[in-house]
Structure formats: C-alpha cells, structure tokens
Design a protein around this nucleic acid. Structure first.
Lengths: 205, 205
DNA sequence: GGTGTATCTTTACATTGGCAAGATGCACAG
DNA sequence: CTGTGCATCTTGCCAATGTAAAGATACACC
C-alpha cells in the first residue's frame, strides 16, 4: 500500500519540512520569539537536533519561512474581513480591522513577521509574501481613490502610508501592552480600535 | 585626594552600573537585540561575566533598564522637536517628527524599547518612563483640543490613539524595511513622513 | 582598629546553534 | 532485479551563553 506521504519509521520522515514548520509555530506561540529554540522544534517533530539544518539551513531560515507564512495568514485575514463589502470606504476599513484582528489572534506570529532583525529580509519568498499582503491594502486604497492603474505617488501614496501606519502602529502598541492603560473604564480595545479606524479612508485636508 | 567616583583597579569599579549600561548600549547598537549578550557587555565594561547580575539580576533586568532610558531619550527627542513652537497643531506635528526622529537615530534602542517580550513590562521604572514619554504626546493633544483637564475619553482619546498609532506604525515599518519600496523615485522617506504627519491633528470627521 | 557587607571573581553546569562525519534508504540507471 | 548516487537524517563534538553557588576583596561603619 504505497501512501504518497506516509509517516516513516526513522529516516526519511516524509514531510519533515512541514512538520518542522508546524512545530515551530507551536513553539513560537508558547514561548515567544525570545524563547524560540531550534532544538525544541526538532524535539517536537521527533527528529534529531541537526535535522532542521537540511531544510532551513539556519534558525534564521526557519524563522524566515515562518514569517512568510505569517504574511500569508495576514493577507488571508484581510481578505476574509473585506468579503462581501462593496462600499470602497467600508471595504478599506474592513481590511484594516482584518489587519488588527490578525495581530490579536496571532500575537507572536505578528511580532515575528515584522521583526526583521531575526529574519533574512532578502529572502525572495519572504519578500513576495510581504508584497502580496501589502497589495491587499494598496488595492483597497486604489479602489477608494478610483485610481486602479495610477502610479503610486502623491495623494495615493500618502493615503496608503497613513492607513498602513495607523493600523500597524495600533496593532504593535496593543501587543506590546501600551494601550491597556487607555482602555480603563470605557469600551475596551474595540472602542479604541474603531476610533482609529475612523481616521483612515478620509479625504486629504 | 578622595575622588567621589573614581576608577578603581580591580574590585569596586566605582560606577559599574553606569558602565554596564553604556556598554550595553554599544552592544545593542552594533549587534542588535538578537545579538545582544550579557557577557559581551561585561567584557566591554572590563568585569567578569557574572558581575552584571549584582546590578541587574538578569539579562532581562539590564534590557529593561536600557529600555527605560530609551523612553527618556524618546521623550527628550519629542521635547527638543517641539521647542519654540506655539501653534497647537504645529506643535503636535513637531512632536510627531521628534518621535520618528528618535526611531531613525536610534533604531535598535527603539526596537528594544517597544519589544516587551524581552523586557520586564511590570518594572516600575520602565512603566514610569513609558508614561512620561506618552504624556508628552497627550499634553500636545490636550492643548490642541483645549482640554487640559478633561478625562481621557471620547474624541480626546481617539485623537491621541490615532496620532500615537500613526507615528509609531510609520517608525516601526520604516525600521523593519517595509517602507523603502515606496520611496523609489520620489522624495524619499521625509516626503512620506510629511504625508503621514499631515493626517494627525485634524478635526474628527 | 576590627567587623559586617556589598561588590566582584571564580568555578561549574545545562542549554543552545552550528559543523563534520557517518548511517540510512529512496531514486534511478542498467 | 541489482547496484550505485545522493538526499535525508543521526551522532558526536565544540564554543558560547545565562545562571547559580561559593569564594575573594575592599569599602563603610562602629
């Protein structure tokens, strides 16, 4: 019975690359980027401590691959949030909510995805995933401004930078615990988020 | 000749705590937060590798103390930027420029200051320094809205969150290299920054 | 002048990332 | 079917790190 990708006994794991990525995601979620350990990933995948080197070369390589997956999940979160919303302004704001939702759902992955000091920023897979995620935001901005093919400059570029900065900054501050002291008494994080969301997709002054 | 804080020969360094902080800042600037090492700090300060434990307890303790200093420098950068500017809106925008300027001048310190996963976020000194830095921004918002004593809620709170998020997000994205691809051809980072700055201090929709 | 104590050193140990050499078994040619 | 090449994985090893424990030193205070 030849299974295509079977679990083997000792050697030739079958799909060790995937197993290591899954283990790495668990380790990252549990211990954070500071407590992340290559050997712990190998232990959870049931292989020796040197096995990951063959698939990722380096701990940086593994983290970079994980970060690329993080960008894909971020893009998916934005796509999911905007599904079925046609009004351009509301569509952009839904995407913004999807961005923050990803950060709140996967805080450690969000941190890793944007902490280039531990990643190989030149990795083409990483760059492609990052570009695809940002393209989601850019498309919404273009739709709102009615400029599907215009070069990215002037008002268009300013609007994209502003929207992106504000959702990213809010997400980051929230994860690093610098927002909590503002939510005392009133509405919680969601109310604060809506206040931020209201500032994007506005016409320029 | 009794000097108050002299450089001693071997034991009793004099002001080892300060010397370790200085060394740690160099190590952080050179190797980043990922390559930061307690032993390297001790080497540069000319003491044994176990000496830092007495002053900071832990590598987390040293990084937390460094992060608190980072907040002080951030606050100083904002104060310096707003000096002599009286118009409330321009004052707020000058403070925003000071925020980004700190991030650009001290990228590694900016990363450390906001990477709570490697810090002791409950440290009172750290929290006080963070609060003092954010108070600078809050005061400018209050001045702009003419509400020096109002409780921080509603429009006031939304404006603060929006301003803070946008300058922080822009700084973070810039440092992590996700802004470079938008500056091709036009104006560079400063032009992009001015576009972001223009979005803060506006009346609510 | 003597003693207590904070400061710093020495020593030791477990853990980690990375390298090199060896073991294993799949793929593919004949 | 058989044998060879090679990717995959393991074992063994090393230097570096963080932390703890025990010892050395010199300042402060009585």
């Amino acid at each position: 019975m030849p299974q295509p990708v079977p679990d083997k006994t000792a050697y030739h794991h079958g799909d060790l690359r995937r197993a290591l990525l899954d283990a790495a995601e668990l380790v990252l979620a549990e211990r954070g980027i500071g407590g992340f350990t290559l050997r712990e990933c190998a232990r959870r995948a049931g292989v020796s401590h040197a096995a990951p080197a063959h698939h990722f070369g380096d701990v940086t390589g593994l983290l970079t691959a994980l970060a690329a997956l993080g960008f894909e999940t971020l893009a998916a979160s934005m796509r999911e949030a905007r599904a079925g919303i046609d009004d351009p302004r509301e569509r952009l704001r839904a995407i913004a909510r999807g961005y923050v939702a990803f950060a709140r759902r996967h805080p450690q992955r969000f941190r890793l995805t944007f902490s280039r000091s531990r990643l190989n920023g030149d990795d083409p897979v990483y760059q492609a995933a990052a570009g695809a995620a940002f393209a989601e935001l850019e498309a919404a901005i273009r739709l709102l401004h009615g400029a599907p093919d215009a070069p990215l400059e002037g008002v268009l570029r300013a609007a994209l930078t502003q929207s992106w900065s504000v959702v990213h900054g809010f997400s980051h501050l929230l994860l690093e615990g610098h927002v909590a002291h503002m939510t005392d008494g009133e509405g919680g994080v969601d109310a604060l988020l809506e206040g931020v969301i209201a500032s994007i997709g506005q016409p320029a002054p």
